[in-house]
């Protein structure tokens, strides 16, 4: 029983360490995109560690039962399903609202893609009226 308690404690400790890293990353990273990288992600492993850790920790105590672990696993799964969607929405909103990349960034293939697409659309639009005029 004590091994379970110790394992749970270790997992919670690891989780809080990753929370700390997320907070540190928020301060150290240069732009919103890199801040997202450190904060949302480390927070995922941090939350996973704490949540699963609590489930295992509770198994080692007198009041604990298997229900603790299964419940925390369900919570962790839902967290894993929903967390990336909010991260994706945030970073896409940041990009669409025109926040520039850090000057040290090496490439931006997305801008190239959008520009190529807009150009193709323009070309298609400018062609149609001409054809209509000829008829």
């Amino acid at each position: 029983m004590n091994a379970l308690t110790a394992l749970g404690e270790v997992l919670v400790l690891i989780g809080t360490f990753f929370y700390f890293l997320s907070a540190l990353g928020l301060i150290r990273m240069p732009d919103v995109y890199n801040r997202m990288q450190t904060s949302t992600k480390s927070a995922t492993l941090g939350s996973l560690g704490v949540i699963i850790g609590v489930g295992i920790w509770a198994l080692g105590t007198d009041f604990g039962s298997a229900a603790w672990l299964t419940k925390t696993v369900v919570i962790a799964v839902f967290l894993l399903l929903t967390n990336p969607i909010s991260a994706h929405a945030l970073i896409r909103a940041a990009y669409k609202s025109g926040i520039p990349l850090w000057e040290g960034s090496v490439m931006d293939k997305y801008r190239e893609h959008i520009e190529a697409k807009a150009k193709a659309l323009e070309a298609a639009e400018s062609e149609t009226p001409e054809e209509g005029g000829e008829e």
Binding site: L21, L24, T38, L101, S105, V106, M107, K109, Y110
Partner: peptide
Amino acid sequence: ANLDVAYRVLHPRRPIRPGIVH
């Protein structure tokens, strides 16, 4: 990957080379 990012956050020189790839 978490350990990799943790290393980049903790490293004094902050070794990042970000970019949007395809």
